[in-house]
């Protein structure tokens, strides 16, 4: 079980580092068109920032920023965004995930629509990977037992 640390150095360093990690993660996701990177890599970095917050600030504080319920909902939202973009292409009369069909909605040339479609699905992948990274770490670090359920389940720590 991860408990709250009183160490001011750990908390301060984490507080300074986390915004930079998150900005870098967003950069990796958004810059996947021009450099190595993309949804999977950026999502893992973004997930790592939340895991760092969980390690340094404890479960109670971390649940205010990112709870296991939020992570579950976000992970489904990411896949829904991905498949939703694919379905939108289907509705526009193209093949599934053929982003050229988005050009009439986005009012750009088909090539640019494909670029934006790639960006959209990368964001979906990033959200899913981030939420699942956090969710898996949350379950392993707590053993799957939430603090408010500990007494009911008869767990002594």
């Amino acid at each position: 079980m991860i408990s709250i640390t009183d160490d001011i150095i750990i908390r301060a360093v984490a507080r300074i580092l986390i915004p930079f990690i998150q900005v870098y993660a967003l950069y990796v996701i958004m810059h996947g068109h021009h450099s190595p990177g993309g949804g999977f890599q950026g999502g893992v970095i973004l997930g790592a920032s939340f895991i760092l917050y969980l390690i340094t600030h404890g479960l109670e504080e971390a649940k205010e920023k990112m709870s296991e319920l939020k992570a579950g909902l976000l992970s489904t939202f990411g896949i829904l965004l991905y498949s939703g973009i694919g379905l939108l292409c289907l509705i526009m009369g193209r093949n599934y995930l053929d982003y050229g069909g988005l050009s009439t909605i986005l009012k750009v040339v088909p090539a640019q629509a494909r670029s934006l479609g790639i960006l959209g699905i990368e964001i979906g992948v990033g959200i899913t990977v981030m939420a699942i990274m956090f969710s898996v770490f949350f379950d392993i670090s707590t053993g799957g037992i939430l603090p408010e359920d500990e007494e009911d389940l008869g767990v002594n720590r």
Binding site: I79, T128, S135, V136, D139, G144
Partner: peptide, 17 residues
């Protein structure tokens, strides 16, 4: 992406009580 999602769901199903 669905594989990643399935891995997370499996982790929840096995561990979370």
């Amino acid at each position: 992406t669905a594989v990643i999602f399935t891995a997370g769901i499996a982790c929840i199903l096995i561990l979370r009580r």
